[in-house]
Design a protein around this nucleic acid. Structure first.
Ligand SMILES: Nc1nc2c(ncn2[C@H]2C[C@H](O)[C@@H](COP(=O)(O)OP(=O)(O)OP(=O)(O)O)O2)c(=O)[nH]1
Ligand SMILES: [Mg+2]
Ligand SMILES: [Mg+2]
Ligand SMILES: [Zn+2]
Length: 563
DNA sequence: GCCGTTTTCGGCCCGACTGTTTTCAGTCG
């Protein structure tokens, strides 16, 4: 999709406008970018079908941005962006990425000291030139250095799954503090974003004692800010943790505020204004009288809205689109991707099956083919593999093991496995494991060819991305999703946190194309089976319902419904 | 730059914490 590229250009333009002190355009461009990301439909397709008018129908996109989108679609360039960029090279705007430096201060540094990069900023501080500037002082220098050396750069993110245990333990520690009656994870963690910038924790307490306890925790390396109602710390684990403390009667409003997203919050606050009310983290107010605040449900109701699930609160149309009943973990009856000692897994077929209960069925999908690193099953070892699954099924009670494989797709889209083997499978995953960079057209053809194979049940981790590490492969989503629907090939929601593939927006797009989805944890050990919850949360973020995911079916129905 | 059944002009979410500002701007959530 071209959407991401255009949204990024708009975000960059917003930063540059902000740096230049231009009013309102930053907000406007960010809103436009945000809404483009939440579209679930390709801008190119919209332009093709409905032209400029279609583009202007997108909220936050008017004359100016629509014609910029048109320019980018037709020429692949954006003149306004290039002009701005010429004036403000990346290094200059990146000054705003230093914690504590915003547009105003960055602009002063650039203007008065000719600082154009982070390295030059460091040098200026060493010469104590910064402290002499108006609006700066000795503490500013120290804080900027801290920001550079200790804290993360703005926008730097970590995998949510890696910090979740830390977050849970900090919640548990806060629950033990005297006077604290409730603690919740909030922010992007409560929304189950695959990556997070920080850990946000909300608690109820009438005293600010909890703030002292929080800032004094053993893993706190640096206290960034500490006040009466909130504090921010940087912990040894290398992440920022924000705590917000409110009284009981504000808890619903505060949980809503701190869960976000920012865009969702702003939309709710605008609705409040329209109703002559005011919404903040303490409650919903008519003049000074609280109309709601204790619970989130009450808050949404008083705003005339249904309760919105946290996973949907991204400012992606959740207030104007009917919210379906989203899939839940209990709906999922099976885990459809995992590995055993037959390839690169650490446990036997029976071990994985027993650990996967109370699921009703699983697919063992060991690697097949030639990648030596994954110790793949091959033609010679397949009989033994097949027999092991049959034997396990004879002994197992309450869970059924499907015979699967994860086979490679070659550059042309051929599935690298003999039909004589494929036809013995209950469930065949095909995946791109090499040659990730290809021409878009060729990649699209490659995936469509693979789906033409009558034995391929689903494409595993369809985009091949590794979160924060490897970019997705590039293909024409419209063509691939249409072909998946046509050939009845399912697309996988790989639940492993570092895959999260398909991701939320593509899940939404796939559903719009009537594509069937499957879900698998890609477990290589029994420990990984719990990642199924991440898969479900990701599916919910993609607005998926039970009916969209094949492994919500009973085994019998699943066998009938799959390709 | 975008938007509107009370507006085509005048708004655009609202509050906490920090530092050098002697009364509040900047940054952030
Ligand atoms: N009303 C309002 N709320 C905000 C604003 N910025 C942040 N919040 C709220 C919503 C956020 O979800 C919550 C936590 O802020 P964070 O900066 O930690 O963002 P969030 O956790 O959503 O994402 P992250 O993964 O941390 O980048 O605070 C804002 O400008 N206005
Ligand atoms: Mg956060
Ligand atoms: Mg935060
Ligand atoms: Zn794979």
């Amino acid at each position: 999709m071209i959407n991401k590229a255009i949204a990024q250009l708009f975000y960059d333009m917003a930063d540059m406008f902000e740096f230049l002190g231009v009013e309102w355009k930053p907000q406007a461009y960010r809103r436009g970018a945000q809404n483009i990301l939440g579209l679930g439909k390709d801008l190119g397709a919209i332009y093709e079908e409905e032209g400029i008018r279609g583009l202007k129908a997108i909220p936050g996109i008017g004359e100016a941005m629509a014609s910029k989108i048109e320019e980018y679609i037709t020429t692949g360039k954006l003149k306004t962006y290039q002009k701005l960029r010429k004036k403000l090279p990346k290094g200059v705007v990146e000054l705003m990425d230093v914690p504590g430096l915003g547009a105003k201060k960055a602009a002063i540094l650039h203007k008065k000291l000719k600082v154009g990069t982070v390295a030059q900023l460091r040098k200026a501080i060493k010469q104590h030139k910064v402290a002499k500037l108006e609006g700066f002082g000795p503490k500013s220098e120290a804080n900027i250095l801290k920001g550079l050396d200790i804290f993360k750069r703005k926008g730097e993110r970590v995998l949510m799954a890696t910090v979740r245990p830390l977050a849970d333990s900090m919640v548990a520690r806060l629950q033990k503090v005297k006077g604290v009656t409730r603690v919740d994870l909030a922010g992007s963690m409560r929304r189950w974003r695959p990556t997070v910038k920080d850990i946000d924790i909300l608690c109820i307490s009438d005293s600010s004692k909890v703030i002292e306890a929080f800032c004094g925790m053993s893993n706190v390396k640096e206290v960034i800010a500490q006040g009466k109602t909130k504090a921010s710390v940087f912990v040894e684990e290398g992440v920022e943790v924000d705590l917000r403390v409110v009284p009981k009667e504000s808890y619903g409003a505060a949980l809503n505020y701190f869960t976000g997203s920012k865009e969702h919050n702003i939309s709710l606050r605008k609705i409040a204004i329209q109703k002559g009310l005011k919404l903040n983290e303490y409650g919903l107010f008519s003049k000074t009288r609280a109309v709601a605040g204790k619970t989130e449900k009450e808050l949404y109701r008083k705003l005339g809205l249904p309760y919105i699930e946290p996973e949907l609160r991204e400012g992606h149309g959740e207030l104007t689109t009917h919210q379906p009943k989203l899939v839940t973990l209990q709906d999922v009856k099976a885990d459809l991707q995992m590995h055993t000692t037959f390839s690169d897994g650490n446990y036997s077929v029976a071990d994985m099956a027993k650990a996967a209960k109370p699921l009703k069925y699983i697919a063992i999908t060991d690697h097949y083919g030639r990648i030596p690193i994954a110790n793949p099953v091959n033609k010679r070892r397949f009989a033994k593999y097949s027999k092991a699954i049959d034997e396990a099924n004879k002994k197992l009670r309450g869970i059924m093991v499907l015979k699967g494989l994860e086979v490679d797709i070659d550059k042309e889209g051929n599935v690298e496995c003999e039909p004589s083997i494929l036809k013995q499978l209950d469930y065949c995953l095909a995946a791109v494991h090499r040659a990730f960079t290809m021409d878009k057209k060729a990649m699209t053809k490659r995936l469509c060819n693979a789906m033409d194979n009558e034995y391929v049940t689903a494409l595993a981790h369809p985009t091949g991305k590794v979160v924060l590490e490897r970019d997705p492969i590039v293909f024409d989503t419209k063509k691939v999703f249409a072909h998946a629907a046509k050939t009845q090939t399912a697309l996988e929601i790989n639940a492993h946190p570092s895959r999260t593939d398909l991701g939320a927006s593509m899940i939404q797009e796939a559903i719009a194309h009537k594509v069937k989805l499957t879900m698998g944890t890609d477990s290589h050990s029994t420990e990984h089976l719990r990642y199924l919850e991440y898969g479900v949360r990701n599916a919910r973020r993609g607005w998926a319902e039970k009916k969209h995911i094949l492994n919500c079916l009973s085994l019998r129905q699943f066998m009938k419904a799959k390709k």
